[in-house]
Design a binder for these strands. Structure first.
Lengths: 116, 116
DNA sequence: CTCTCCCTTGGAGTGCGCTCTAAGTCAAAT
DNA sequence: ATTTGACTTAGAGCGCACTCCAAGGGAGAG
């Protein structure tokens, strides 16, 4: 699969795909005869997972750490899981924070006409 | 109230308070005899509101627009309210997105030991 | 008077996450 | 044979939201 197809399927730009590879987020993408990147299905699944992590606000640095652990093999499962659990807590906290702030916003909108 | 006190009470740094003033987010803070900023209670309340907007992910540019409308007086109430309503929709959407992603994360963590 | 300390300003620098450019390669189409 | 267009790399640039710096200005303590 070409970089353009991978871009379309992952929702990332070709620029970003190259960038992710450069920083080690996605490792050893195959090349075809002309040296062009040739993505496979597992790359797309990995990109989908990375995209989930990003969209939940995980910093690139943490994603790199996760990718590194993944490359190191199965004995890093526990650490990877711990990393995801810490992240899950952050996401939960963020949802809680946003939910609270939403109520403040609701109140502000409802009482408009009072002071700004 | 000095800039340090305002910083402490708003949770923003003195640097950020000056920056916010420079870009027009907080207008005409009073000065004392030596030209030092002298914040009052209404400034603190306004900063608290700004902080809410920021923490819910409103871009600085939109906050500036809101601040500008506020300076223009009461006839901008409707537009301000509309701006807040649009923002509220974005916050709701973000909460929904995070909540969905959280489930994916939960699943990933629960089934760990399967494929990474 | 000098030292210390916090304040002022304009402007430069930082970190993050991309995003784009330049220079060059290769393959298919005309 | 040439043109077109998508690809490659290393590296530069950008937008956002700060964050810090340099140079200078009082005010109070010793």
């Amino acid at each position: 699969m070409t970089i353009q197809e991978a871009a379309r399927r992952s929702g990332l730009s070709a620029h970003t795909l190259r960038y992710y590879e450069r920083i080690g987020l996605i490792h050893s993408v195959g090349r075809d005869g002309s040296g062009h990147r040739d993505y496979v299905e597992t790359d797309i699944r990995w990109l989908a997972f990375l995209t989930k992590l990003r969209s939940t606000g995980m910093p690139i640095a943490d994603m790199c750490r996760y990718a590194e652990l993944r490359r190191m093999g199965e004995h890093t499962f526990a650490e990877r899981q711990a990393l995801l659990e810490r992240h899950r807590e952050r996401v939960r906290a963020r949802i809680a924070e946003l939910t609270e702030d939403l109520q403040v916003l609701d109140h502000k909108i409802a009482t408009y006409g009072g002071r700004a």
